[in-house]
């Protein structure tokens, strides 16, 4: 049960991080003192949530994924499942660095005056959203790979 709860933690943290990045993106459309204050809070939230997602997903990977991998490799989605997992492990590095870069841009980027800095903020926040959704999609493929393998083993 605790193990099952554990698998829910990292996607939850990751998705909340994606939502916080979307919040930064929307605030960056029009920058004033109020939106800048909220962007600072939201961008730090993105960094903290993604930093927490990292060990939360990683510990599951190290401790529990082995059994699921063995099942996946007996099923028809072995190639997709393995590709999704390898992609997740390495793509997350991009998500993590974008999430740490976002507060640097928001705090040090001269956002009130600089159109370029605003564009960069929206770019980085938008990329956190897109790459975070890719992680979500890869996770869904992983989950389905296990399910399809079980159906197959049961002859369904």
């Amino acid at each position: 049960m605790l193990k099952d709860l554990f698998i829910l933690v990292h996607p939850t943290l990751g998705v909340l991080g994606v939502l916080a990045a979307l919040w930064v993106f929307v605030e960056a459309l029009k920058v004033n003192d109020d939106t800048l204050r909220r962007m600072k809070i939201a961008s730090v939230t993105v960094a903290v949530l993604m930093l927490l997602t990292w060990p939360a997903g990683g510990v599951w990977d190290s401790l529990f994924y082995g059994a699921d991998k063995a099942v996946i490799e007996k099923g028809p989605w072995a190639f997709l499942g393995d590709t999704a997992m390898e992609t997740k492990e390495h793509l997350f590095v991009i998500v993590l660095l974008l999430s740490l870069y976002l507060p640097i841009v928001v705090f040090a980027g001269n956002l009130r005056a600089s159109r370029g800095a605003r564009l960069l903020t929206m770019t980085v926040a938008g990329l956190v959203v897109l790459s975070g959704l890719a992680m979500e999609g890869a996770g869904a493929v992983l989950g389905l790979s296990v399910k399809v393998a079980f159906f197959n083993l049961m002859g369904a």
Binding site: D82, T83, E86, H90, L91, S114, L119, L120, V124
Partner: peptide, 28 residues
């Protein structure tokens, strides 16, 4: 400027994302 850095960030993200996807598929 901001545009230049944004272009570098987008380019490196897309390029490394594609390399990672291809390497993951090759490994699988």
């Amino acid at each position: 400027g901001g545009r230049g850095v944004a272009a570098i960030v987008i380019g490196s993200t897309v390029a490394s994302g594609l390399i990672i996807l291809a390497a993951a598929a090759a490994l699988a």
